[in-house]
Design a protein around this nucleic acid. Sequence first.
RNA 1: GGCCCGUUGGUGAAGUGGCUUAACACGGCGCCCUUUCACGGCGUUAUUCAUGGGUUCGAAUCCCGUACGGGUCACCA
Length: 470
Amino acid sequence: MRTRYAPSPTGYMHIGNLRTAIFEYALAKKYQGDFILRIEDTDQARKVEGAIDFIYKTLELCGFKIDEGPLNPGKFGPYMQSERLDLYKKYALELVEKGKAYYCFCTEEELEALRQKCALRNRPFVYDGRCSKLPHEKIEENLKNGVPYVIRQKMPKTGYTIVKDEIYGEIKIDNSILDDQILLKSDGFPTYNFANVIDDHLMAITHVIRGKEYLDQTAKYNLLYEAFDWEKPTYIHVAMVLGEDGTKLSKRNGDASFMDLYDEGFLPEAIVNYLSLLGWSPADNQEVFTMAELINKFDEKRISKSSSQYDVKKIEWFNHQYIKNMDDDVYLNWVKKYFVNPDPTKDEKWVEHLLLIYKNQLNYGKEINTLVQDFFTDNYNPNEECQEFLKSDPIIPEVIKTFKMEIENREWTIENINEAINKTKEKLNVKGKLLYMPIRIATSGIMHGPELADTIYLIGQEKVMARLNK
RNA sequence: GGCCCGUUGGUGAAGUGGCUUAACACGGCGCCCUUUCACGGCGUUAUUCAUGGGUUCGAAUCCCGUACGGGUCACCA
């Protein structure tokens, strides 16, 4: 069992690509197979500097081990398509030799004319194969004169080709719509389809997992495998991942790339966990699981046929689960990367205490900044809901007054704050919400917050007393 | 437009002819617990599986049509 992840080096990995990689990885590892990274850089224009390091880094963060790739080659290298050009040429020529492919000297203009003709008749464009009828001498002459050419594969004009897919079953594609596909471009680079087939075969890939948008094209792949008389890999096409709005993923509809999520403070484990459940589900009911468990549970037969929508709320929930389960010191180290301290004069212990009391309600790293903001402001303006509450019972002003008296002359510790609350309770014989909420509002100005004693302690003596004296 | 694929709740989904008058999870709403808040727990949220026919004693599950959604038809990957 060998699977591969074959991205283009664009320096960007959206969630759909990552999800495909997760499936590829899980499948390979389930059967103790190898996971190969191949860089598809045949489009010179779209190449991005440093993209390979970026891909390695991303996969590493996600917990993937790359068995073979450009930075750790195995015996099937090179793993960059741009370094395999002679290979593609060799195989393209082999097909020409066998009479299964031919040189095509058609110019851009000729093709455009052809295209127009098809458009006029409202038919899909199919190359008419005129160059396949060129006499031998003419071809030789053109080649000698350096006329630019591409190599095209001869496709059958009748009948149909069956595409076999693990998820979608058998699909019949009419051969008449198949173009004599270009194998080698005039710049000497292979087309994506051609390079894919050559590489998958030479790299002994057994299972190809890819987006459903390639399903129709697989007929062309099959014809290529047949032309070479090679064994086809098992195909597993997966439906798309859509954005939150139900449309195709793009930079426009939200933080749809791995790095965006990572930068927001989503843990790679949580991201992987969540994505594995998009378009796939395990036979049992477990949702939160480790990579090892995923590998163990993974079953490619259970991949869904229909596309699924990305949901921020749910990925937040997953992230929340992982954050809650972190050890305190690990959590602090992690959350500090996202925390922007508005007041550097606060000492480290105070900051850590503050960060810690939000650990079990934090959804993602950067959220910490909005959660803690009330601890960094001098503004005290309780909202309407607070005002309503304060007026809801005559005892409330008493509670606040009593608490103030109790805390006034004590040393500023959490124990003493709790003690003051308790004394208030005893003196006035109030408890529950009527006891806590007035104090909470009077000291912090908000109705929702972390543990009350911690909150009061962290707001600080000076500020609290000032508010109580109002 | 031709061809291909899909359609279970707001979302992820289970379900492959009777155990389903549709699991589980997220979100929403409500309640409870911890003397407050949060965490957590519990309940509720699809009279029904896009729709119309058919097959069958029986259909979300099988067949056909329709609608809707998506994909694909490049010297892009």
